[in-house]
């Protein structure tokens, strides 16, 4: 019986990771738009709080991480996905921190808490993928050919 963390069961795997796919695709779109036209992000706390080159790295993580995470789910490649989710996690943590720095703990508290929730979900997904990878590595399938003397 396959689990929803086993990429060979495509439907269950993608169903379980729907949140990652959606968040990855949205992040990819927003990050790419921000990289193309920085003026779209003038109200962003991260852009206001961070220096220019850190913002570029931040947006790259958002765009590339989102693309990798979504692609990992859709192409059933957990390794690709885990890299993307780590990048998204960094993006979310930095964004939450920037919101706190920019708006203060009261003004930005709710948004920062939402970011923390997203980070929690992303971290949970990483844990799930690690667990699944380890379980897969430890599977012992005895690859012994059938006895030809008895099956002849």
């Amino acid at each position: 019986m396959t689990s929803s963390l086993d990429p060979t069961d495509a439907v269950s795997y993608r169903r379980r990771a729907r949140v990652i796919t959606a968040y990855g695709l949205i992040s990819c779109c927003i990050g790419t738009a921000g990289l193309i036209d920085r003026s779209l992000l003038t109200t962003s706390s991260a852009v206001q709080a961070l220096d220019g080159w850190v913002v570029v790295a931040f947006l790259l993580y958002q765009a590339v991480g989102g693309a990798l995470a979504a692609a990992g789910v859709l192409l059933l490649r957990p390794k690709l996905e885990v890299v993307g989710v780590w990048a998204l996690l960094a993006f979310v943590v930095i964004n939450g921190g920037a919101i706190l720095v920019n708006r203060g703990p009261v003004g930005g508290g709710v948004t920062a808490a939402s970011m923390a929730l997203v980070a929690y979900v992303l971290h949970g997904r990483i844990g799930d993928l690690h667990h699944a990878a380890r379980r897969e590595r430890r599977v012992v399938d005895v690859g012994v050919a059938p006895d030809r003397r008895t099956t002849a």
């Binding site: 961070l50 850190v54 996690l89």
Partner: peptide
Amino acid sequence: TNYGALAALIAA
């Protein structure tokens, strides 16, 4: 903030 963000990116 800047160095924290950079550290987070590298750590990720």
